[in-house]
Design a protein around this nucleic acid. Structure first.
Length: 465
RNA sequence: GUCCCUAUCGUCUAGCCUGGCCCAGGACACCGCCCUUUCACGGCGGCGACGGGGGUUCGAAUCCCCCUGGGGACGCCA
């Protein structure tokens, strides 16, 4: 085991979204690759907005993607006493102080600053006061001014420098006594010995003050790697109006987890011209050095393409198992039909999602099919009566319904009717499947089986008009 | 507004560090052709980009500067 320790630290205020999943994935890949440790920490210091349902949803999504953690999940809500001690320590050392300014006062100052074109910062009103009014207070970190700027070398973006006069005294404890994000993230990452923090780009601005906090607390400063954001097609931050952003929504839409993993990793990372990566490939090949520095646009079409690839090449047994719930959701009793593996085999080349596959599979189940109206009027006409009767006789005589004997039977039909294959196949397809698009007619016959196939042809004979 | 990040086809990207092999390669999408019993798959081909301006250099997508565009942050959210 190497000493690399990384973590994923979602806040449980909703489902796991695309962006979070990618961050989690990058952490996971590096941990596995370097035989390090992947820690999962639930950032629920905002007691108001955090829910157990969200925690469960996040855990479920990570499980679906195959991102198992090595330690955790740890909950920050279990650790409030640790934070309280550390805050007291800072106060005792004169590195933090109580501030009695009200939210209203602060808001007014912010607005005024913005209006004057200044960066809205806390003005330090309470920084040096010695009285202790009997009023609600927050605790602020006293930003050290012993140097003018802080620089860190981001593993993805390179060196980044912030001048300290851009920073202000941030609140580390709220009026209600709970600690804030920028404080707990430092304490926890330090206490959990995290030495590489991989997180979203939106945190670079927090990094310098966090570094100052590490120093004030006497902790070693970890390395940072800030991964770019994911945008929607309009280059705005990805949100629900761009479509589904929840990882699990894609499972419901019939996506395979490996498609999502493959897509997510290629969004902002590349390995030459390669497009297809298994988790094992990624563990071997992933590197922060090849992660791009600019934000990327989420492209559902490419995800769909990857999904069709993985369905096309997927294991039949597994796909059958994954497909079953989608069929059941449509009210289909899979026991009343052919072997699911055989069904999948006929459909995997023509389905981009499991939902599509389920749609395409319904005709295999049940005694009869519902005819598509247009298909029926076009192909189930009275002048096809003779064709169907010959078809019926030839297929009846067909001992086994394998491709070879079916071909023989069709040759017979073509000979006695003088029709081309297409003229036979299309009406038969409608009789068998109810529609004009399906797997190859031989496959359909074979999978449906002799009894069902003949039954459906007989029924077609009854409805000819 | 201020600060930070960023910039190759519509999108994801290779190339950039170590200038010439790049009148820029791959993938998705799109278009056409082929294959074909339908729908698909597949094969072949096409469309399509170095944001702009200055430098440096014999030579720049590659190095430097400015501009512009895009994103992010500026919370008693994380």
């Amino acid at each position: 085991m190497s000493d690399l320790r990384v973590r994923f630290a979602p806040s449980p205020t909703g489902y796991l979204h695309i962006g979070g999943a990618r961050t989690a994935l990058f952490n996971y890949l590096l941990a596995r690759q370097q035989d390090g440790t992947f820690v999962l920490r639930i950032e629920d210091t905002d007691v108001e907005r955090s829910t157990q349902e969200s925690v469960d949803a996040i855990l479920q999504a990570m499980d679906w993607l195959g991102l198992a953690c090595d330690e955790g999940p740890f909950y920050q809500s279990d650790r409030f006493d640790v934070y309280r001690r550390k805050i007291q320590q800072l106060i005792d050392e004169g590195k933090a102080y109580r501030c009695y300014c009200t939210p209203e006062e602060l808001e007014a100052k912010r607005e005024a600053a913005m209006k004057e074109g200044r960066k809205p910062k806390y003005d330090g009103t309470c920084r040096n006061r010695s009285d202790q009014p009997d009023a609600p207070s927050v605790v602020r970190f006293k930003l050290p001014h012993d140097r003018e700027e802080t620089t860190f070398v981001d593993r993805i973006k390179g060196p980044i420098t912030f001048r300290h006069d851009e920073l202000d005294d941030l609140i580390i404890q709220r009026t209600d006594g709970t600690p804030t994000y920028n404080f707990v993230v430092v304490v926890d990452d330090a206490e959990m010995n995290i030495n590489l923090v991989i997180r979203g780009d939106d945190h670079v601005n927090n990094t310098p003050r966090q570094i100052l906090l590490y120093e004030a607390l006497g902790y070693p400063v970890p390395e940072f790697a800030h991964v770019p954001m994911i945008l929607g097609s309009d280059k705005k931050r990805l949100s629900k109006r761009h479509g589904a952003t929840s990882v699990m929504a894609y499972q419901e839409m019939g996506y395979l987890p490996e498609s999502m993993v493959n897509y997510l990793v290629r969004l902002g990372w590349s390995y030459g011209d390669e497009e297809i990566f298994s988790m094992a490939d990624l563990i071997e090949k992933f590197s922060l050095e090849n992660v791009g520095r600019a934000a990327g646009v989420f492209n559902p079409e490419k995800l769909l393409w990857l999904n069709s690839h993985y369905i096309k090449t997927g294991d039949l047994d597994r796909l059958a198992g994954l497909l079953q719930p989608f069929l059941e959701k449509k009210g289909i009793d899979v026991a009343n039909g052919p072997d699911l593996k055989a069904v999948v085999k006929t459909l995997q080349e023509r389905s981009a999602t499991l939902v599509e596959m389920a749609d395409g599979a319904v005709f295999y189940f049940g005694e009869t099919v519902d005819y598509d109206e247009k298909a029926k009027t076009k192909f189930l006409k009275n002048d096809q009566r003779e064709l169907f009767e010959i078809l019926l006789a030839q297929l009846e005589a067909c001992e086994s319904f394998d491709e070879a004997s079916l071909e023989t039977a069709f040759a017979g039909v073509m000979e006695s009717t003088g029709l081309k294959f297409g003229k036979i196949a299309q009406p038969l397809r409608v009789a068998l499947t109810g529609g004009t698009a399906s797997p190859s007619i031989y496959q359909v016959l074979e999978v449906l089986g002799k009894e069902t196939s003949l039954g459906r042809i007989k029924r077609a004979l009854e409805v000819l008009a």
